[in-house]
Design a protein around this nucleic acid. Sequence first.
DNA 1: AAGCTAAACGGACTGCGGTCCGCTTTGTAT
DNA 2: ATACAAAGCGGACCGCAGTCCGTTTAGCTT
Lengths: 211, 211
Amino acid sequence: MTRIFFVSLIPIRPEGPSGPPSERSDAARNRERLLEAARDLVAEHGADALTMDMLACRANVGKGTVFRRFGSRAGLMMTLLSDAEAEFQQLFIFGPPPLGPGAPAAERLIAFGEARIAYIDRNGELARAAEHSPHNRHEAPPAQLWHRHIEMLLREAGVGDPWLTASFLLSVLDPERVLYALRTQGVELGRLQAGWREFAGRLLARPDARD
Amino acid sequence: MTRIFFVSLIPIRPEGPSGPPSERSDAARNRERLLEAARDLVAEHGADALTMDMLACRANVGKGTVFRRFGSRAGLMMTLLSDAEAEFQQLFIFGPPPLGPGAPAAERLIAFGEARIAYIDRNGELARAAEHSPHNRHEAPPAQLWHRHIEMLLREAGVGDPWLTASFLLSVLDPERVLYALRTQGVELGRLQAGWREFAGRLLARPDARD
DNA sequence: AAGCTAAACGGACTGCGGTCCGCTTTGTAT
DNA sequence: ATACAAAGCGGACCGCAGTCCGTTTAGCTT
């Protein structure tokens, strides 16, 4: 049985550049200024070093404006990530196997983790900062989508309690943890991915393997 | 081959009540005051609501004193947990099987996770706060001990890259995640433990099962 | 008992994320 | 052109973790 998910694909953030309420011109101008300044600051000093005051100052904008636009520091980081995130989503939902549909669940799960780890290796600091919110946390739209995706794969593979198991697997792929391994512990990207392959492979290994 | 680990068992915190440099009397008095005040505040309002100013005020002590004693908020929480933590350590190192030595690795791992989840259900807020440090994080003595323990079990079970796999499993048992499932998502303790049983069980299932 | 020194003390201060609210700008209705 | 509401703006303000440094005190020495 095929489940159809009504997935809103791109809208990582609720509002696109031109929403129905039609953004006021000064607001649009300020949003551009802020995004440009934020990208510059991240490029120069890294995501962790970016402070909201610094950003407001650089963009010649009041601090209140920054928070009205993005809600929080995490929301800003989310916005900065949205392009990369949308691309990643495309790949595992519509892309070619084994990441996209067409491959067996076990292979798709392995590919998902490998791709996610590579993603974190590239965009990890932003991703980590995007989750560092007192509220939200694991409730951001992308996280929910990953969860549903993995849950579906696990159900396909006949794992009991796929929902909970998906949570477990997402813990392993948490940017905080993955970055800690990559940066602080100095684990090589390849080793991490190989570890995931064995981990996920064992988890979905069918005792009655036959193919 | 049996590996012998020189494990310093109790010292979750570096210094005990009577260290060699012999604590000054006023310092000892203030430490007691602070611990009592901290326990009261946690009992009254929960660990998350405890602020360092509040604690200093309640203990009739300067803020600087609080930080000299515990280093950080996380350090304070660590200290408050040290008794429960030491007890937990005793159980999985010296206690009866299946948690303690004597049972097969797979069973010990399952028991470890179940015990850890129950522990987090009891002391989770403190444990989560104890890890919420900008520095340290996964480097606190207890976490290293758990890691070595799980690593040993995985090696015994013939898992490749036991070190990395142990990191993965500890991600799943992270207080942040477990508490989120228990409190925010409303997952029942029993379901969480059952999920872990299946998860860890699958992971260590030997394809050539014979016993 | 008096003097001395290192340890301990306390609270003002900093930096940061986030909020609030009185003022300004924009787009529209007349 | 003018008036007017609402959306937007900005920066003073708050709470909190953590630091700094001038002052106090415990406990040893003589």
